[in-house]
Simulated assay, not measured.
Amino acid sequence: MSLKSTLLAAVAAATLAMPAFAEGMMVKDSYARAAGMSAKAGAAFIVIENHTGQDDRLISASSDIAKRVELHTHIEDENGVMKMTHVEEGFPVAAGEMIMMQRGGKHVMFMGLNDTMDQDDMVSVTLTFEKAGDVVVDVPVDLERKPMHGSMGHNHGHMKKDGDS
């Protein structure tokens, strides 16, 4: 590996390891994945902390990776079967609280993938909050992560207020 490649990799790793803040919202431990190489759907799992001092709500998400992007969760039906469902009203993020978007629970769903999701790719996702507005998050693709894996202290992703560079 050349010195330039090594330096670029080091800068990228340092950037990804930093907590991401925007308008008091902090994203930690984010990653995205698809079920397989030819999958037509994928998902992003993100921890969002609200440090704004006021309640807010994540109302939608968008990304160029898919034809449709929705906020989803799993709910138990009357037969005890867990089913994935679109949450049109979004997810509340109370002041001083966090939401954990993880497998088997809340997540950003990508339907009709426009491209493959390969290990270590970055997926740009715009999270839209009622009060904080649009926030762009670069989410790393991690196809190797096991369900419920990761530590709350291990930070991934880069977040910027829409319009920032």
Rank of each mutant, 00 (worst) to 15 (best):
M1D: 08
S2C: 04
L3F: 06
T6I: 13
A9V: 11
A10P: 02
V11A: 15
A12K: 15
A13V: 09
A13I: 06
A17G: 01
A17L: 02
A17V: 07
M18V: 15
P19R: 13
A20E: 06
F21I: 11
A22D: 04
A22N: 06
A22P: 04
A22Y: 05
G24H: 00
G24P: 11
G24Q: 01
M25G: 03
V27E: 03
K28H: 09
K28A: 00
A32I: 00
A34K: 03
M37K: 08
S38R: 10
A39F: 05
A39D: 13
K40H: 10
A41N: 13
G42V: 03
A43R: 06
A43K: 00
A44S: 14
V47Y: 02
E49C: 05
E49W: 03
N50M: 00
N50T: 02
T52G: 10
T52I: 13
T52L: 13
Q54S: 15
Q54W: 15
D55P: 12
D55C: 08
R57E: 01
L58R: 02
L58H: 08
I59M: 07
S63H: 08
D64N: 09
D64I: 03
I65C: 13
I65W: 05
K67M: 14
R68D: 15
L71K: 09
L71F: 02
L71C: 02
T73L: 10
H74M: 07
H74T: 07
I75M: 01
D77K: 05
D77A: 01
E78C: 11
N79H: 08
V81M: 09
V81F: 07
M82F: 08
K83G: 03
K83A: 06
T85N: 05
V87E: 07
V87S: 03
G90L: 03
P92K: 03
V93C: 10
A95N: 10
A95C: 14
E97I: 00
M98Q: 03
I99E: 09
M100Q: 07
K106R: 15
V108E: 00
M109L: 06
F110M: 05
G112N: 14
G112Y: 14
N114R: 13
D115H: 09
T116D: 06
T116G: 05
M117V: 08
M122G: 04
V123E: 03
V123Y: 01
S124V: 12
T126C: 02
L127H: 08
T128V: 06
E130Y: 00
K131S: 14
V135L: 12
V135D: 08
V136M: 06
V137Y: 02
V137W: 04
D138V: 11
V139I: 15
P140W: 14
V141E: 05
V141R: 04
L143K: 11
E144A: 03
R145Y: 12
K146M: 15
K146W: 14
K146L: 15
K146T: 15
P147D: 13
M148F: 14
H149F: 12
H149Y: 13
M152G: 04
M152P: 01
M152C: 01
H154I: 12
H156I: 09
H156F: 05
H156R: 11
H156D: 01
G157T: 04
G157D: 07
K160T: 07
K161T: 12
G163T: 15
G163I: 14
D164R: 06
D164C: 00
S165W: 13
S165E: 14
S165H: 12
